[in-house]
Amino acid sequence: MTDTSQIPLAPRKAEEDVWKYPRPPALQRTPNRLRVIWTTNDGTETVIADTTEGFRVLETTHPPTYYLPPSSIKVPLEKTSRQTFCEWKGKASYHTFNPPSASNPITNRIWSYPKPTGNFTPIKDYLSFYASPGIDKTKAGGNWKCYVDDEEVGVQEGDFYGGWITSNIKGKMKGGPGTWGW
């Protein structure tokens, strides 16, 4: 197990400007409660993940990306064949969630780093969730919502980055049309 005591602790609810985040990215422990909850179309809720032991990655022009420990995952996930590469963290693996009472799985919207590089070794096997499941809730049979403490997060524009936007995160963010060349 990696000693994480030397990794900085994120401030709780301080206003932050994404243009002041570092490049290369930085890893922080977060004191916040992180949750992902699936709600079926009839209103039944299932906790997918719940933790106060997460990390967040900060990178210039991006809202924080949160990583939750494997022990916080309350439902089975299946690894998919999809992989991507991050120049800072290494090779990412992706996962599928089969929602209860749903006919369609949520595929490749959860990722992890089985062998992260450099300063990111503390997030080995931790899971990160896009702020939305990326499929219409009628087709999926429901929707997931992500929370930092009790605040439901907003979705980072585009479908490449997985940052979570809370009310204290400010600044023009990468991901939407016209932002790729920054």
Results as ranks from 00 to 15, higher is better:
Ile123Val: 03
Leu77Ser: 01
Asn119Phe: 14
Thr30Phe: 06
Gly181Val: 12
Ser128Asp: 02
Pro22Asp: 12
Pro177Cys: 00
Pro11Asn: 10
Ser128Phe: 08
Glu157Pro: 05
Asp125Cys: 07
Thr84Met: 12
Gln28Asp: 04
Tyr147Ala: 02
Asp3Cys: 06
Ser103Met: 11
Thr121Ser: 15
Thr179Arg: 09
Asn98Ile: 08
Asp150Val: 06
Trp19Val: 03
Lys20His: 14
Lys137Arg: 15
Gln28Leu: 15
Gly134Glu: 05
Thr61Leu: 15
Asn108Met: 08
Lys115Phe: 13
Pro114Asp: 05
Ala26Arg: 15
Thr84Leu: 05
Lys124Leu: 00
Glu151Gly: 01
Gly90Lys: 04
Thr4Gly: 02
Gly181Asp: 11
Ser103Lys: 07
Ala10Asp: 07
Val75Asn: 08
Pro25Ala: 15
Gly175Thr: 03
Ile135Ala: 03
Lys139Tyr: 08
Ala92His: 08
Thr52His: 00
Asp3Ala: 07
Glu151Leu: 04
Ala14Gln: 02
Arg23Thr: 13
Asp159Ala: 10
Gly158Pro: 05
Thr65Trp: 00
Asn41Leu: 15
Pro31Val: 02
Thr166His: 02
Val18Ser: 03
Ser101Glu: 14
Thr2Asn: 11
Pro114Leu: 11
Ile7Glu: 10
Arg82Met: 13
Phe55Leu: 05
Lys20Thr: 14
Val148Tyr: 04
Thr44Trp: 03
Gln83Asn: 05
Thr44Ala: 10
Gly162His: 01
Tyr161Trp: 15
Thr96Glu: 08
Arg35His: 07
Arg23Val: 15
Pro11Arg: 00
Ser72Val: 01
Ile48Ser: 02
Thr46Leu: 00
Pro64Tyr: 06
Lys170Thr: 11
Asn41Arg: 14
Val18Cys: 01
Ala92Lys: 04
Pro31Asp: 00
Ala131Glu: 06
Val153Arg: 14
Ser81Phe: 06
Pro116Asp: 09
Gln6Phe: 13
Asn143Ala: 10
Lys13Pro: 00
Val153Tyr: 09
Thr166Arg: 02
Ala49Phe: 06
Gly43Glu: 11
Lys172Phe: 10
Ser81Gln: 15
Leu27Pro: 06
Leu34Val: 10
Phe97Met: 07
Arg35Val: 06
Gly178Lys: 00
Gly154Val: 01
Trp164Cys: 00
Met1Gln: 14
Thr39His: 08
Arg82Tyr: 12
Thr80Cys: 05
Glu45Ser: 13
Val75Met: 02
Asn143Glu: 11
Gln83Glu: 11
Thr61His: 15
